[in-house]
């Protein structure tokens, strides 16, 4: 019997080669979250394809390294939520990659904080890893944007079920 695969996209922007901050997550066998960024070369579809390449893909590799979960052991769907950065010129394009990585760092930190928030009822671990250049460490503008991005991701992920009212209780 032929296997049927399915991919659903929420808007044509998904296919466009913009710059994005994205979040990959699974819920079964465990809650795992991965935060990443991508430039405009292949957009998020190209980035997703990289992540799914067994042995090379970072998401798959991190799931194994950090959580001992193999690709075959992932039950259900692998989800991707992406935040389009087209409204932030200083976060778009190859030349602004260090800025985008700073944003990625702050989003990752926020979602790590939320993983131990009282409003999180399904535990999850953030397995991605990023370091930033020193000069971004206190960039208030990126910290503010990161909060917006992290809150959007958190609200769309199922780890809070119905308890999430738009305010994270730490």
């Amino acid at each position: 019997m032929k296997q049927i695969e399915q991919i659903t996209i929420s808007s044509p922007d998904v296919g466009r080669c913009n710059s994005f901050i994205y979040c990959l997550y699974i819920t079964d066998p465990e809650g795992v979250v991965y935060i990443g960024e991508t430039g405009a070369r292949n957009g998020i579809l190209g980035r997703l394809s990289n992540h799914m390449t067994k042995g090379e893909g970072t998401f798959i590799r991190k799931c194994y390294e950090r959580k001992n979960i193999n690709l075959d052991e992932i039950n259900g769907n692998i989800h991707m939520i992406a935040f389009n950065l087209k409204e932030y010129p200083d976060l778009c394009g190859d030349v602004n990659r260090p800025n985008r990585r700073a944003l990625e760092y702050f989003v990752q930190n926020k979602l790590e904080e939320y993983s131990v928030a009282e409003s999180t009822i399904i535990p999850y671990d953030v397995v991605s890893w990023v370091r930033i250049a020193q000069r971004f460490a206190l960039n208030e503008n990126y910290i503010r944007i990161a909060e917006e991005v992290a809150d959007t991701f958190y609200a769309k992920m199922p780890f809070t079920k119905n308890l999430f009212s738009g305010k994270v209780c730490l």
Binding site: G36, G39, R41, G57, W129, R131
Partner: peptide, 24 residues
């Protein structure tokens, strides 16, 4: 500016994800 920035940040830009994204 871009090249200098990359060069100076090199030691903290050793994140392994870099390689994958660069291959895009």
């Amino acid at each position: 500016s871009y090249q200098l920035s990359n060069f100076i940040d090199l030691k903290i830009e050793s994140d392994e994800e870099t390689g994958v994204d660069e291959a895009d």
